[in-house]
């Protein structure tokens, strides 16, 4: 579903990604962990071209990414993204947040888009909030709306960039539950997160990144409880 071949990213002098090669199969839930500045978020942002890789190849569902606009807009419809800071559109109701892209990008009729939105709101447990504005919702509710919004374009892959790290502790569970359900439905997911419980329960694979490279990868139990690389050991020692 996602193929990364020797992906590099520079920000000026800064070499953030140093040759990432990996494959994510359909239905996999890949959790990326690693210290801040290790390039996790940049890698995620490269997968839907919010950042353009300096070198290397990214292939999504058989489509090779390049910087032609039609290509990018098309591929992005297949790749949903959930941000740390939600990034809901504050001037629109929850309903309009969710239906905007289906209407403008997929060309759905408003009534059809609203049906899909209602279904998704039920899925994330917010059926009664369709007419609310984002500022009237808690952080956890906002993030669940953001997930529904990303799902509304019916992507084949979902990317999550630290989806729970801006949330109060008591709201993390509700967001992770939604993500768990999504994974059980067979969604292909790439998640940057340090939620170990989630990674162990749902993750099919864990990638440990450090200094722009994938240092270690494997099944969650292996990486968490039997890390082979000493940098992984040091990092896990700090966060466990």
């Amino acid at each position: 579903m996602i193929e990364l071949k020797n992906v590099h990213k520079h920000f000026g002098q800064l070499h953030v990604l140093k040759g990432i090669t990996s494959t994510v199969d359909q239905g996999e839930v890949v959790v990326i962990i690693g210290p801040s500045g290790s390039g996790k978020s940049t890698l995620l942002r490269c997968i839907n071209y919010l950042e353009e890789p300096t070198k290397g190849e990214i292939i999504i569902d058989g489509i090779k990414l390049n910087h032609s606009a039609t290509n990018i807009n098309r591929v992005r419809q297949e790749v949903g993204m959930v941000f740390q800071s939600f990034n809901l559109f504050p001037h629109m109701t929850v309903m309009d947040n969710i239906t905007l892209a289906p209407k403008k990008v997929r060309g759905l009729a408003p009534s059809k888009a609203e049906d899909i939105a209602q279904e998704l709101l039920a899925k994330v447990g917010l059926s009664d909030k369709a007419e609310a504005y984002p500022r009237q919702l808690s952080g956890g509710q906002q993030q669940r709306v953001a997930i529904a919004r990303a799902l509304a374009v019916q992507p084949k892959v979902m990317l999550f960039d630290e989806p729970t790290s801006a949330l109060d502790p008591e709201m993390i569970g509700e967001v992770l539950d939604v993500m768990k359900n999504l994974a059980e439905d067979g969604m292909t997911m790439v998640v940057v997160s340090h939620e170990m419980g989630f990674a162990r329960e749902v993750g099919t694979r864990v990638l440990f990144m450090d200094e722009g490279k994938i240092v270690e990868e494997g099944k969650p139990e292996e990486v968490f409880f039997n890390p082979k690389n000493e940098r992984t050991q040091a990092f896990l020692g700090k966060i466990l």
Partner: peptide
Amino acid sequence: GQMEAARSLGMSW
């Protein structure tokens, strides 16, 4: 983040 969210949903610039 507003523009990024819009672009990530497949909208053009």
